[in-house]
Design a protein around this nucleic acid. Structure first.
Lengths: 253, 253
DNA sequence: CGTGCTATTGACGCAACTCAATTAAGGTGG
DNA sequence: CCACCTTAATTGAGTTGCGTCAATAGCACG
């Protein structure tokens, strides 16, 4: 089931058959479905599990008293929503779906036994968490320093590369189910301005965007224009020294 | 030495004499001094230790190719710069000082033995890390949704409350060694606009600011104006169930 | 085959930026 | 302790990226 998570973690280190099996077990225990635009967790809640996105898109967001809404991050298939909520008493933000979402609720105990018995998974989850933190920092830079076009371009680069990492791209295309309002809430721009920026990107051939489907004909060019430096995603199998060795083939149970 | 760290962690759970002693030992091993505006770690480095700020202010920042600079977070006395750098291969950002800084370098081994032998410290460091992540999310909201005045107000609230948490305020005042350029780089505003916003805040009595010293006569009012909700700092001793019990008094070694 | 979101377009306004010049503050060496 | 020098703060004038408001057109989905 959690192919995307496994695939993502293997960008960091190769897992053993056992590791993968344990993840599959954990993701099978409690699966839930959500409609689009539905809250999964709300600010103030105190959940007793973490959510693993199996299918669909979700986002973390905060709302100011007067209604302004900021999307703080996107969750794609394979993403863990809040690996360590348990330490803090209550959620300081909400998580809601963008599309239909299928997710696995993983209980605190399951997660604990998973990490206690699988050091490579533990390390890989650390990596995942730190990359998430790095992504949050990059969003800070995005919102603070980049122009509208750069912000949108940067976001599209990030989403495309993350989707590619879990096998959800198709050549130079991928699904983009977020609305222009969502993109605006994520980049701090009005939906009107997002629209205009997208038009400009279309006419200059930076992106093609049609019916929830995105094509980036020249990713390098888009990265250049958006001042996108991929290093914050730490994609070059930095934990390869932890790779599961060949013994799994000898002992496939 | 690390009174500020201890004091901060005790906002989460009370530590035993032993816990505190271990932290003091760890912070004593290698102490370094830095001048103002000096890099402590640069993007691309691969440090083998974490830095604990003992005295002074520092900041995390990233620079775009064309020179635009975004301050991503401020480090105040008691803050740990990057508790888990070891997992990732290289720094994706830099850390530099604002003022003169005295810091303790804590080696990987020291940190490991500290957490292995002191579960309350481990928990408290988790809390510290998660609050840091929550702060980063809040900055995302700040940059994405708030107006100039709200951004500056929000930042000043945060800094004041964090400083108060480590005992570095004086009634309704505290030191504010950051320049207006720094404040601009942190809030995504030009220094000119920061200046104008501060003037407006002065004339409306929201803050007094003179010679690197900040006074907030009515913190609640500033919070209201800045749409500041303190919940993301998770200050209400959420780990109090972990408090060291009275046994330390019976066994003070 | 509406009904309600989403996308698009135009007109207009303003928050914040840039450029540029001036004043004030610290820090340093003689 | 003052003269000097650098950095930070302040002010003014002119510009603009992006927001708001409002109306229309295009979808999807029940």
């Amino acid at each position: 089931m959690p192919q995307h998570l496994i695939r993502k973690l293997e960008q960091f280190a190769r897992l053993s058959y056992d590791d993968r099996h344990a993840l599959e077990e954990a993701a099978r225990q409690r699966v839930r479905l959500f409609d689009p635009h539905q809250d999964i967790i709300r600010e103030g809640d105190n959940p007793d599990h973490v959510n693993l996105i199996l299918e669909g898109w979700a986002c973390r967001y905060k709302t100011l008293e007067d209604g302004r809404r900021q999307i703080i991050s996107f969750f794609l298939p394979g993403d863990l929503c809040d690996p360590h909520v348990f330490v803090l008493r209550e959620m300081d933000h909400s998580i809601s779906t963008i599309t239909h979402v299928r997710l696995a609720e993983i209980s605190r105990d399951t997660l604990l036994s998973l990490t206690e018995q699988h050091p490579r998974i533990t390390q890989a989850l650390w990596w995942e968490m730190l990359v998430h933190a790095a992504t949050q920092r990059e969003w800070t830079v995005n919102l603070g320093q980049r122009t509208g076009l750069e912000r949108i371009g940067h976001l599209l680069c990030e989403l495309f590369i993350r989707l590619r990492g879990v096998g959800l791209t198709n050549g130079d295309s991928c699904a983009l189910p977020a609305t222009q309002i969502d993109l605006g809430d994520a980049t701090g721009l009005s939906n009107v301005h997002v629209n205009r920026v997208l038009q400009e990107m279309r006419t200059t051939g930076l992106v093609m965007l049609k019916g929830k489907y995105l094509t980036i004909p020249d990713l390098e060019r888009l990265q250049r224009v958006s001042l996108f430096n991929v290093n914050y995603l730490h994609l070059d199998r930095e934990g390869r020294h932890l790779d599961a060795n060949g013994s799994e083939r000898l002992n496939p149970s």
